[in-house]
Design a protein around this nucleic acid. Structure first.
Lengths: 196, 196
DNA sequence: TCAAAAGTGTTTATAATACACCCATGG
DNA sequence: CCATGGGTGTATTATAAACACTTTTGA
């Protein structure tokens, strides 16, 4: 038997704040923890990140790092309101392994799952949700179409009450919430659907 | 520093043969190799599987196995004609970790990428390609629609010549090939496309 | 001339985008 | 009463599924 290299769990925790996608850093690096023998990867991750505070977690990728250790990265998502402490920095300004993969995974899943629930507050207006999507996708999104797509798919539900307009006026906005707080694939078969 | 657990690279190599999706086994188990210090995961995989013979490889998932070792699994695909040696068994009859994940990944990617290239022979008729898709997807596929979708997306190209009919007759079938032998996403934005 | 297999033409269904227009509020 | 922001109605477009029909072969 040869000596094995150490294995670390790495967290790429993201949120959307003030119209920008941000990543949680720990002294300039992604939070990580060394895996103890017999321990699960998620348990190790839990020593690096407050996993219970994450609205969604999923495994990203395993790579051998420059320092020779093996790292398994996880994507974690929280809403902007989350009290998760740490050093938040714009994803676009970060040149660390796994961050690009996390961003690209998030972007893809926003299109065909309900994963927005993990970035949005409990209730929100369509405009607010639009800002989240714009920041995470990196391109403009029409509020009209966003609403129609997510309502048709059953991803969004209307909630009682309205948001009062600001001092510049405007019609009060209806409030919505995500129908589920767990990941669901909402557009499974883009093509080649099974016959009826 | 604590003792680290051993890390293994695992291959889930699949092909479609005689209308069934099959997995390559090594004495009843998935081929695997222990990672040496400083070695890349792909290099370790290469000691378990003839990676050069694979038409497509991608990482699947990392898990702690029942025996305590950490395993990173890869999905490998080969065409039925591949001379890759070993014990091929129907995927549906296998109860091993990673196989279900591999099948589900393959199914998804058949819908929105050109990954079929890795399972199909160099040239083929639409009927032959249809059999590959039926086996890998697990549901019926219309030859008509399969052809139209893949041609429209630019995934398939026509090749000179025709396949002579069998003794039961029928119109000779046109031959096609995949336009690329590398993975390409052909239907990236199911929804929420960037504006023009 | 018929059955089999392949391929095309055309219709239908669905989903999403685009855009015009109406609604409700503050000042 | 008008600017602002929210929301709905209604094309338009794109993609793919469904299905009828034509083509080309072997026997």
């Amino acid at each position: 038997m040869t000596d094995s290299t150490s294995h670390v769990g790495v967290g790429v925790v993201m949120r959307v704040q003030d119209g920008a996608l941000e990543v949680l850093l720990d002294r300039g690096r992604l939070p990580e923890a060394v895996l103890e023998p017999g321990e699960s990867l998620e348990a190790a991750l839990g020593r690096a990140v407050d996993v219970a505070a994450l609205a969604h977690v999923e495994q990203l990728e395993t790579r051998v790092l420059d320092n020779g250790s093996i790292a398994t990265a996880y994507l974690g998502l929280v809403p902007a309101e989350s009290p998760l402490a740490g050093e938040w920095r714009r994803a676009s300004a970060i040149e660390l392994p796994f961050v690009a993969a996390a961003q690209s995974r998030l972007r893809a899943k926003l299109s065909y799952t309900n994963v927005g629930f993990a970035l949005a507050p409990g209730t929100f207006t369509i405009s607010e949700l639009r800002e989240v999507y714009v920041a995470a996708l990196g391109h403009d999104v029409s509020a009209t179409n966003l609403q129609r797509v997510l309502i048709r798919r059953g991803v969004l539900e209307r909630v009682d009450g309205r948001r009062a307009p600001g001092r510049t006026g405007g019609r009060p906005a209806a409030l919505f919430r995500f129908a589920s707080d767990r990941l669901e694939v909402t557009d499974e078969f883009a093509t080649l659907r099974p016959p009826r």
